[in-house]
Structure formats: C-alpha cells, structure tokens
Design a protein around this nucleic acid. Structure first.
Ligand code: FES
Ligand code: FES
Lengths: 147, 147
DNA sequence: AAATCTCCGACTTATTTAGTCGCATATTGA
DNA sequence: TCAATATGCGACTAAATAAGTCGGAGATTT
C-alpha cells in the first residue's frame, strides 16, 4: 500500500533526534527508545544497521551511545531508508528479473520505474537536517490535506 | 517497503490493456486474466472496484465485459491505485489521527507528508494513456537503473 | 570487578497481501 | 423461454511480510 515500515520511521526519528542534539554527545539506544516509546530491542537493531551503513557511529561502554557519522546536511532520507529497508521499489517485482509469474507480461512495470526514480530523487534531496527544521504540523496544513 | 501491491499492478495492467484495445469493444475479466496470467477471481474483484470508482463500465451477459468509462488521457494512475488500495500514505500512521503508539511523539511524520504529496502529484500526472505509450524496456535504460 | 552499553541471531506473534471458493444476479443469443 | 456466459459479492484459507521479543556474547568506562 506504498507505506514506509515502522522501522524506517523509527530510524528517521532517531536520526532527526541525533541531528538536533548533536551537541549533547552520544545518545544511547535505550534513551532514544524511551524518548519516543519505541521498543528498545527493535530500535537497537535499526541503529546497528545505520552503523553498518556508516550513517551512525557507535560508542560502546558506560555513557556510550550513538552519534551521527556525518553532517546531517549530508545525509539524505533515502540513505536512511535504504540502510534499513534495502533498495526500494514501487513495482511488485522488486528487481529487473521477474519475481512474479506475470513479470514477462507485465506492461506497467517499466512505466512505473519512472515514478520510482522520482520518488528516490525526492527522498535523496530531503536531508536529515531538513527534518529537524520541519516544525509541528500547522492546523491549516491539516485541513488542506484531508481532501 | 514502499511497494505497490499486486492488486494495483493488476489494475493498471487491465486499464492499460483496455486503453490500447478500446476499439475491440468490451473485454471480459476472464479474457484479461488469461492474457496476463492473473487469477480470474482476483482480477474480477479489482475490476469491480474500478467500476465502483467509475473508471470502468461493465456490461453483463454474453459477450459482455469491461470498457473504460473515460478517455484514457483523463484517467490518472493515482485514481486507479486509489480505487484499488484506498488512500495512499507513505507514513506508518495512515491518517492525521495517530494509529501507532508513537503518533504523538513522531517527529518525522509531517516532513514526510511533503514527500507523500510529491508522489501523489507524480502519479496523478501519469495517465493511463501514457502507460500505453511506454514501450518495452530498452537495454540502455536497464543499465542506467542498476546503479 | 562491576555496571553499562553495544552487538547479534533466532524466535514468536500480528498484520497484511494474495489467492480461492461458492453462490447470486443480470444479460444475451439461439 | 432457457441455457450459456458474464458480472457481483462475501467469506474463507494460505502465504508473505512486518513487528516485536528473548537470550546471551563482547566492549568500554568508572
Ligand atoms: S511488476 Fe511484476 S507483474 Fe507487474
Ligand atoms: S508515523 Fe506513526 S510514529 Fe511516525
């Protein structure tokens, strides 16, 4: 249904928090989990993936935790999402090689690639830094959205 | 994982086919299913949804079938997808009212709305007619995609 | 040495998606 | 008229994915 998973959501939340509070030093996964009511173990695994993708740096031991590996202005939402969920595809067949029985007869997969590329572009232009700039939702915006 | 469901895929395939073969008169769900190796019953339900959404017109009885309700140039991929899958949201919380436990603390839902709107825009500009214009995938494009 | 925290994999459960079945109803054509 | 062919509709099962849980190993600081 074209939804981002919660894992990606959690990852973005964590990245945003670290970007906002970079001056406070490392932040543990437990603290992050508590702050946003995210299951600790679930978040821990997500953070680990982000470390592997070199978007975060981890510091073990007492008072350890996670820090952004780069300037948040240089980290895109796409990188975060991809690190957590893997490559994203809008089509049912995830790769060029057909996954589903209709792959050879599917007439819309290629046209949808364009859409896919646009989405990737948008997400790659949205930086973690920009996430921190986005304030709470204004009521006006809410109304506009409902239609 | 930001994927379109197969139902949407099937729906788009059917719409494209009807747009391409509008001169041949109505096309039955069975014929469509056979043509693209789609389970008949599954496709039938999808087509029914499209009829309800007034994107298709159905004709019952012998030699009956489905026809586009409008000029394919005036039907967007977004309409088709929405008719089949309902409103699409990229965020985990599908609506403004929080669905998940983190809804009140989620700091990235609003920023992602912008992305969501962009996707909707792209899909609303992609017409069923344009789908028919898109040919088989060229090898060149394939290579470009892989990176 | 103890406390704290990261790291990792296997596991269970919940939710969504995909596909199936059976029957009702409408329309055409011989 | 009546049988064949078509859509319409709901409930159902099975498969795939997502979400969350558990237990324990290893690293670092105090
Ligand atoms: S993408 Fe696999 S059948 Fe269309
Ligand atoms: S969208 Fe629900 S927690 Fe972020």
């Amino acid at each position: 249904m074209l939804k981002l998973t919660k894992k990606a959501d959690y990852g973005l939340i964590a990245m945003r928090h670290l970007a906002e509070n970079s001056d406070l030093g490392a932040c543990s996964s437990k603290d992050l989990a508590d702050l946003y009511s995210i299951p600790q173990e679930a978040l821990a695994k997500i953070l680990q993936k982000l470390v592997k993708a070199k978007l975060l740096a981890s510091q073990q031991g007492t008072n350890g935790g996670y820090v952004l590996a780069r300037d948040p202005r240089l980290i895109s939402a796409l990188e975060v999402i991809r690190a957590i969920e893997g490559p994203l595809f809008i089509t049912s067949c995830s790769s060029a090689k057909g996954d589903c029985s209709q792959s050879d007869r599917c007439t819309v997969r290629e046209p949808l690639r364009k859409v896919n590329r646009t989405i990737e572009e948008v997400l790659s232009k949205l930086t973690v830094w920009e996430l921190t700039e986005s304030p709470e939702q204004s009521p006006v915006e809410l109304v506009t959205l409902q239609q």
